[in-house]
Nucleic acid binder design. Structure first.
Length: 437
DNA sequence: TCTGGGGTCCTAGGACCC
DNA sequence: TCTGGGGTCCTAGGACCC
C-alpha cells in the first residue's frame, strides 16, 4: 500500500508555525517580486482568492478583508520541509519525496494490514502537527493516484482525522464517483477538454471507460492513470536522487538593460546551479542560457520588440542558447567562462530583459566521467580550488567566497522586491524568535 | 506600476547508420 | 514508371506536476 503525505497549504502553514496569531485569519504567500499568490490559507480560499492570481488584481480584497501577505521565504520552507520528511521517513519502509511538501510512503502489505496503516497514519498526522507545527493529510490506497485522491478526502472531511483509507472496491468506487476528473493527478487542462467532450466528468467515468479511450486521448501517461484509478500499481516515480536538469531563473521587478547587471545575475544563477550539481555528485555537459523580454504583450517596456504570433526567442532579440561543453564539469568558474562568453556576444544593450536564467542539462554522475584527449585544463587544480571554496562556504555561510562577477548580497536584496518577507526563524541565529516573559 | 520558479516524462520527426 | 527495412540518437515541443 501507498500513503501519500501532503502538507496542508504548506507555505502558509510554515509562516504560521512562528506566527500562531495568524490561525483562523486569511493568509497568502506570494511568488518572487511579490507577483502572484502561490499558497493560500483556507480562509483566503473561502474569500475566492485563486491560485496564481497577481497581487495587484486583489489589492482591494486584501485590504478590505485584512488578508495577511507574505513574500516567499524558501529558506524557512526548505528547513521545515526537511523536518517533515525526516519524520515521515522514520515510519515508512520506503519514502519517495515528490515535492517540497509531498511524499509517497510505501508499506509492505504482509506486515501492515490496511486498518493498521490507518491507525499509524493518524499517529503520523499528530506527530507532525504537534512536533513540527505543520498540518498534514494522508491518503492510503493501493496505487499512487488513488492515494492522492484519498489525501484530498482526508483534507476535505475532518472526521477522517487527517487520514483517509481506500482499501476496498466499494470505497474506491464511491470515492471516484464524487471526484471531479480535472482534480485527478495526471489529468491536465488539455486532457480535461477532450474528456468532457467524451462525456467523462468524474474519476469513476474514466475508470469505467475503455482503456483504449484513455490510451488514444492521452497516450501512455493517460493509460497509466486509468490503470491506477482501477487499483493497479503502476510505478511512475522512484527514490530519485539525481536531478536531470538544474535551473535557476528569475523575473525581474524592473527589466535589466545593461550587461554588467545581467552578468551579475547570471553568475549568481550559475553558481547556485553548480553548487547543487556538486552536492548531488554530478557533472554537466550542456548549459542553456536565456534572457527574455516580458511574457505579456501589454508590458509597455517590451512592446516595441514584440511581434504578435511569432516566436518570442527568434524575433525579439531575446537570448536562448544551448552551450555544449567538450568536457563535462561542475566547476563554477569554468562553467561561468563559457556562459559569459556567449552572454557578451549576444547581449543587446538597452534591450529590456525581463527574465533570465540558467539551466544545466546533460547531467552525468562522477563514475561515468570521461576525460578528453586534448584537454588543456589542469582539472586537478580546478577541483582542488573548488572544493576548498565549497568547504569555506559551508563553514562560514553561503557566498562567503564568490566570483567577482556575482551579485553582492546586499545589492541583491535591494533589487528584489520582497516587501513581506518573514525572518528565517529556524535557520539563522540572527533571526531566532524572542519570547518575552 | 504590478503577472513565479523548478521540475519530469513522452512523442514525433529529422539525421544518420548499415 | 519503378526507389528497402531496420535501427539509433538527438531535439523540440507538448503535457503535466507542485
Amino acid at each position: 500500500m501507498y500513503v501519500l503525505a501532503d502538507c496542508n497549504n504548506f507555505f502558509v502553514s510554515c509562516e504560521r508555525v512562528f506566527r500562531p496569531d495568524l490561525e483562523g485569519r486569511p493568509v497568502v504567500v506570494l511568488s518572487g517580486n511579490d507577483g502572484c499568490v502561490v499558497s493560500r490559507s483556507n480562509e483566503a480560499k473561502a474569500l475566492g482568492i485563486k491560485m496564481g492570481v497577481p497581487l495587484f488584481k486583489i489589492r482591494d480584497l486584501v485590504s478590505k478583508e485584512g488578508v495577511v501577505c507574505f513574500s516567499s521565504n524558501f529558506e524557512l520552507y526548505g528547513d521545515l520541509s526537511a523536518r517533515v520528511m525526516r519524520t515521515l521517513a522514520r515510519f515508512a519502509d520506503r519514502i519517495e519525496q515528490y515535492s517540497i511538501d509531498e511524499a509517497f510512503l510505501s508499506f509492505d502489505d504482509a506486515v501492515y494490514p490496511a486498518e493498521m496503516l490507518k491507525t499509524l497514519s493518524e499517529h503520523i498526522v499528530s506527530e507532525i502537527r504537534y512536533g513540527i507545527g505543520i498540518p498534514i493529510s494522508l491518503g492510503i490506497a493501493p496505487s499512487r493516484t488513488l492515494a492522492k485522491i484519498a489525501s484530498k478526502y482526508a483534507k476535505r472531511y475532518a472526521g477522517y482525522h487527517g487520514a483517509c483509507l481506500i482499501d476496498t472496491d466499494d470505497k474506491r468506487r464511491k470515492a471516484l464517483a464524487d471526484f471531479a476528473i480535472d482534480d485527478v493527478w495526471g489529468i491536465g487542462r488539455r486532457s480535461v477538454k477532450k474528456l468532457y467532450a467524451a462525456g467523462i466528468h468524474t474519476a469513476l467515468d474514466l475508470a469505467d471507460a475503455d482503456s483504449d479511450l484513455a490510451l488514444n486521448m492521452m497516450h501512455k501517461p493517460g493509460l497509466q492513470t486509468w490503470q491506477e484509478l482501477n487499483g493497479q500499481d503502476v510505478c511512475r516515480i522512484d527514490e530519485l536522487v539525481q536531478h536531470l536538469t538544474i535551473t535557476r531563473s528569475r523575473t525581474f521587478a524592473k527589466a535589466i538593460t545593461t550587461l554588467p547587471a545581467m552578468e551579475a545575475y547570471v553568475a549568481d544563477f550559475l553558481s547556485a546551479c553548480a553548487n547543487k550539481l556538486r552536492r548531488q555528485g554530478s557533472y554537466c555537459s550542456d548549459i542553456i542560457l536565456f534572457a527574455l523580454p516580458s511574457r505579456f504583450m501589454d508590458n509597455p517596456g517590451a512592446e516595441q520588440f514584440y511581434a504578435a504570433d511569432v516566436d518570442i526567442f527568434h524575433n525579439t532579440g531575446g537570448i536562448y542558447t544551448n552551450i555544449h561543453l567538450a568536457v563535462p564539469t561542475n566547476v563554477t568558474a569554468e562553467l561561468l567562462e563559457h556562459v559569459l562568453k556567449v552572454l557578451r556576444g549576444s547581449f543587446v544593450d538597452g534591450y529590456p530583459y525581463k527574465r533570465a536564467g540558467v539551466i544545466l542539462t546533460g547531467i552525468t554522475d562522477a563514475s561515468t566521467f570521461q576525460t578528453q584527449l586534448f584537454d588543456e585544463r589542469d582539472r586537478n587544480r580546478d577541483n582542488l580550488l573548488q572544493s576548498t571554496i565549497d568547504k569555506l562556504n559551508s563553514r562560514h555561510g553561503k557566498n562567503t567566497i564568490r566570483l567577482a562577477t556575482q551579485l553582492k548580497t546586499d545589492e541583491d536584496k535591494a533589487k528584489l522586491h520582497n516587501e513581506y518577507l518573514s525572518p528565517c526563524y529556524s535557520t539563522r541565529l540572527t533571526d531566532i524568535i524572542t519570547v518575552k516573559c
